[in-house]
Amino acid sequence: MDCRQAIELMQDRLDGLSGTDSTLMLEEHLAGCARCQSEWHRLQMLDRLFASAQMVPAPPYLRVQVMARLEQRDRTKRMALACAALALGAVTLALLVFVPAFFTCLSTAGATTALLSGGPATLGQLLNLAKTLGRITPLVVGALASPVAAISLCSVLVALGMSRLLSGLLQLSKPNNAA
């Protein structure tokens, strides 16, 4: 057996993989080889050192930290879903309110233009025009105000949600080493 094979057997022996025959062969080789004796001595010393090392126990608060980060992650995920739903709702609501309001404005504007194009020939027509304008003004304002209010409200809610989501994400990505 050469030294290379002997070193291989030493490693096997440290790993508990060597049989009786190979152990005997190694012993024979070691008896006549000073270099391998020192190598075997070194390897055994290292093996003893590592084998005596204990497992480092996890700090007691680690489990709580892990679960807190999981909870935070789930909360952030829920918040993201809520924000997406809210944004979708805001767009839908805005469309539902704004589109009819837009057409109301168009038709009202059309009627007014038609009325004005003929010109207020008589006092009666002038009064009618004033009445029409008086009637349609609150309608136009109301029709425009409600979608604007709805969109503003939704934007504020989405912005609030997004800011909380972002702060959640930032905290989540930050390593939590607090003892």
């Binding site: 480092v56 700090p59 489990r63 939590n176």
Partner: peptide, 24 residues
């Protein structure tokens, strides 16, 4: 499993703070 995971992380990374973070 926190101790086996923490011990592996500690042995590999060499300090408590990194080992805790790696375990998390």
């Amino acid at each position: 499993y926190q101790t086996p995971v923490y011990n592996l992380a500690y042995r590999m990374l060499g300090n408590k703070a990194d080992a805790e973070d790696a375990t998390q």
